[in-house]
Design a protein around this nucleic acid. Structure first.
Lengths: 198, 198
DNA sequence: TCAGAAGTGGGACATTCGACCCACTTGTTG
DNA sequence: CAACAAGTGGGTCGAATGTCCCACTTCTGA
């Protein structure tokens, strides 16, 4: 094992932990499983982190910070507001289908944070980030179509996140693509109904 | 410890497990924690159940079967479809506020089922049950207001569940009652929009 | 060059977990 | 009342977990 500065090890361990969590769930993310995934020794773990909790804390912060806005950058063209939203949802659904375990892991991390004393703020941070991303996407979409929201965009953003969350959970349970498509149609219609030509 | 037939012990252990899961999470629901909650010895556990997995299996079945339709029985009067839906959502939200840990536990149980080899069907069963409850409520609501759904009621039911799930997760994270109310207003409007006077 | 800091490895610790075993007691049945 | 099944308690097992320790190696800077 080559010598690696502690800071880099921390990063490598966080990445390894993320892989383990995604493929095997939060419960399986033991210190040993994580160091095995990272190809390190157990001692390196506690040299880089003082405890497993510290790792989990940093893991959640990491995923929150790196939550890609993979959904928003759509080629707008001259699509309607409704179609832009629908396309964005479709991109998210494609992402979900491509890597279901990843989104399942995000949900698990949120719940783990909600259950762990002192980590609730991290869950709030995570969702604040979601809301911000959603609000940015919705604002851009409205601008491109010359519409304005009849509600504060923050509220619309929350609706989008709520719908996305619900969509995720239900699809993860039964993997029903047709039902998911139906939900997305409804969501796009309903959200677009909150825009007014201006 | 009085003598209790195994069947009753099973039921008592399931109830105790539910209390532990609700108050401390799925991870804390160890055999020892459960028997302590039930006031039994560890041996009684493995006399009634052959394994912890068997208990968890029965626990999920139990909560699915007893998921009260606490949301549907509203005094309809001559309220509009929109108002009936809104009131139903409010009753659910009240339930959620009254016992957040319970709903959080339901989510955890779903995820635990999704992660556990061979328990995925239970998660599907759980959501099938939700969909059935929602469909029944929506059908009744439509009848009382002389409307009919422009989509199959099963699809509307799924939308309702999706919205409820998303609402639950977001409220659990930030406990923002005002935001939840806004979401419920939107959901009621959007769902009522799927009904046509007939 | 060489001392001290930084990083590494293997092993060990106590704790907790699910599962199990066996001797004991209590109820039931004929 | 006797025999047997049903139920109970306590102790214990092996495995896994988070954490820690200490001897060792490698790097860095004076």
């Amino acid at each position: 094992m080559p010598r690696i500065p502690a800071a880099e090890r921390r990063a490598a361990l966080v990445q390894a932990a993320l892989r383990v969590v995604a493929t095997q769930g939060v419960a399986a993310a033991t210190t040993r499983a994580i160091v095995a995934e990272a190809g390190m020794s157990l001692a390196s773990f506690h040299y880089a982190f003082s405890s497993r909790d510290e790792l989990m804390h940093e893991l959640i912060s990491f995923v929150v910070a790196h939550e890609e806005a993979a959904v928003l950058p759509g080629p707008y063209g001259d699509a309607s507001l409704r179609d832009i939203i629908r396309a964005g949802l479709q991109r998210y659904a494609d992402l979900l289908r491509a890597d279901p375990l990843r989104e399942q892991a995000m949900l698990e991390l949120t719940q783990q944070a909600l259950r762990s004393e002192g980590m609730e703020p991290l869950a709030r941070l995570q969702y604040d980030h979601y809301y911000t991303l959603a609000a940015a996407a919705l604002t851009t979409a409205a601008e491109h179509t010359g519409t304005s929201w009849i509600l504060p965009v923050e509220e619309v953003a929350r609706l989008l996140v709520v719908l996305t969350d619900g969509l995720t959970v239900s699809w993860l349970v039964d993997r029903d693509d047709a039902a998911a498509a139906s939900v997305m149609d409804f969501a796009a219609d309903a959200l677009a109904g909150l825009g007014r030509q201006s």
